[in-house]
Design a protein around this nucleic acid. Structure first.
Lengths: 224, 224
DNA sequence: ACTTAGATTTCGCCG
DNA sequence: CGGCGAAGTCTAAGT
């Protein structure tokens, strides 16, 4: 990895055109060909960048990063006015990042405890196939009625639309004509909740850590 | 801006939990409180990060970056096993990034030359309001018929659905009952084109630079 | 403050 | 390779 702090002017042309007037910035050249141009603010996103595979050419006070993009070409031109610092270091192999808490984990946890979505709910199948995509959880309720559960980390209007599409298709089957729908999400947006009510869909917020029993429910206040 | 190359182990907890085993990485501490953890590959995205506002605490071989996130707290813990290089530099103010070629520019260009969408088309209004959102361009065609134009940089199925929703609402007005729809995009996905045909919607690919006359049409091959 | 829509979205999976 | 959906999406604009 090569790090350069430089006063520079940057031009990108490709999917769009972008221009950065001369200023001091951090340039990062990664071993895999990635190039990042960072300012001293603005969070995690570079001002400009190019992802691999790239070809990097060094000229007179100029670095050109090129990349084939279909018929055309992406081009990042860095005009160096002044190099203030420069530094290179071997980093070696990256050990993989492990994530926990994404939608899939929520689905796994709810599949294991469907009753936490609604009392009496029993799982029939995960990823129940339909023409318009798989239903996350297909269940039966306490009275043996069918229930389709759509799981999201954040429950938005779009999630309600998705659940509605599933139900529309499912209910064409006479056996599933009475199928209900429930949106289960860690966070349910107010508008999504409203639309659920309007469409007679269920809607519950679930807590992954609670589900897993890693954290006790905060309902035990007066039990002692 | 402070740059650190270090063998380190990183743990994030917040909206999800993530763990990075010990390896050599680049740590970037920006002036605004942003913290990035980069590997020597993987494009422009950091392995882990925290956006401002943050609080950074330095302990024994340990850096903790914290951030209030509603009721809870986001936390990035960097356990430093070995600092291999360290470096700090003032960067000063960032001169603003200028972009050109995003959807808004395409809309501006097409508003100025609606005939490039379809011969004879004349603009009536940009951002024509409907209950389900504004129609990008509302036009009349050569025969004075109404035409709603939806503009996208990339024309996907979603864009066709959006245009369809507009038309459904517009056509409720008897004056607009015959309103046609056209999807105009720099890139039209094959499936979107197919759906347009099925729904009797128009569908054109447009070239921003051509529109602006910055580039000549490539039609002059045999004119000499 | 909240919601919506765009993004050089990126990224990964699956056909 | 394209299509589809998730993302700690982020970010800016409108309300």
């Amino acid at each position: 990895m090569r790090l350069v702090v430089a006063r520079c002017e940057v031009t990108y042309s490709g999917r769009l055109n972008a221009y950065l007037p001369e200023a001091i910035r951090l340039l990062v050249f990664k071993a895999d060909g990635s190039v990042l141009v960072h300012a001293d603010s603005g969070g995690y996103k570079p001002l400009n960048w190019m992802t691999p595979p790239t070809v990097i050419e060094y000229g007179e006070g100029m670095i050109v990063v090129r990349k084939r993009a279909g018929r055309s070409e992406d081009r990042l031109e860095i005009r160096l006015a002044e190099v203030l610092a420069e530094f290179e270091h071997e980093l070696g192999e990256e050990a993989g990042l492990e994530k926990d808490g994404v939608e899939r984990h929520l689905q796994e946890a709810l599949a294991g405890r469907p009753a936490s979505v609604e009392i009496g709910l029993r799982l029939v199948r995960r990823e129940w196939p339909t023409e318009v995509g798989p239903v996350d959880l297909m269940c039966r309720d306490a009275r043996d009625g069918w229930v389709a559960v759509e799981i999201k980390r954040v429950g938005t209007l779009e999630a309600v639309e998705q659940l509605s599409r599933y139900l529309e298709v499912l209910r064409r089957d006479p056996a599933l004509a009475e199928c209900r729908g429930i949106l289960a999400a860690q966070i349910v947006k107010p508008q999504a909740r409203t639309l659920c009510e309007a469409r007679l869909l269920g809607c519950v917020e679930v807590d992954l850590e609670l589900l897993r029993g890693e954290r006790e429910p905060e309902l035990t206040l007066f039990t002692a």
